[in-house]
Amino acid sequence: MKVARQNIHWENHQKHIPTVEEEGGRVWGCFRSCFLQSAAPYTEGIAYKILKNDLGIDLREAPGHTSCGAIGYHGDVTKLETQMVIAARNFSVAHYELGVDNLFSFCVTSFANYTEMIQLWQEDPQLREYTAKTLKETTGRDFWIPQVCGYPSVVHASDIFYANRHILAAKAKYSLKGIKAVDHIGCHYAKIFPGEVVGGCEFPRVLVGLLEAFGAEIVDYPERRHCCGMGFRNCAFPENRDYTASSVYKKLSSLKETHPDCDLILTNCPGCTVFLDAEQGTIKEVLGVEFNIPVMDYAQLTGLLLGYDPFKDCGFNAKVVPIEPLLDKIGIPYDKSKTPEERRRPF
């Protein structure tokens, strides 16, 4: 066999995520994303519908679980100690109140944050002891570490879509045959703990596997792994957001140069989903350059192909780049008697 870098990475970076047909894959505890529920709430909406209705997963979520606080961590208002105890609290709530062993998060930064805390506890008994003791003292709760297939870890929501991709593809009403697509993996999904990523950080399989299962042709481009520029304090404060727009410009210029016919970018990170789309508007306004590349997350794409409504279910009415040309190309119907504005403004 020809030894390409892909093979080497693939061998080193596999984790088992149970499908709904396996033990441990039918009940999941989940953590909400504070970024998604603020900036793209419809994405969690469609993910829920698919996980529950199409995959039949028993999703468990406690009212009392909180944000992991990692935006505050990477935004420098909390400490590592804080992150450890909050993670332990959320794990404890999920296990002792909801009876779940395996957990996933909708946010990639939560995924990285929880992975970091679990690995620190594994490596350093003192940190584990500190966390368990502080958790007990502040909340009265008991320490517990989540496991996926017996391995101390959590996974990301896109991992579950990936694991169940063939089941989803078999149910799909539409196919991506003839569609050229590329993934954009969230930095905090892949780059902090590449060993916890399906396929590693340079050649991750999580979204490419989903796209291929739906029949898409994958394209590659030089800046494929460049960050979208969300950058926490850089996107959060308008005076820093030239950082975000510049990163999007760098990426999309590279894509357009290499594959001007690429039809869509698939994401798994809340920040990328929002800013790769939104900054195309800024770039058009400031530089007069139009990319018009639809950006969507794994749940929105799966929703479209399963036959959910592009606007009411998948939320494409709040995006900057129009989705209709792609819907036409795939052959997904929508109400053409309405104007684009009418489709996007239901009230």
Binding site: T66, S67, A70, E279, G281
Partner: peptide, 21 residues
């Protein structure tokens, strides 16, 4: 208990989210 709130993502501070936002 949430790091970001829906009311933080204002059209004034995030004009790039566009007219539909």
């Amino acid at each position: 208990g949430l790091t970001l709130l829906a009311t933080n993502i204002t059209p004034q501070n995030f004009p790039e989210l566009g007219e539909f936002w």
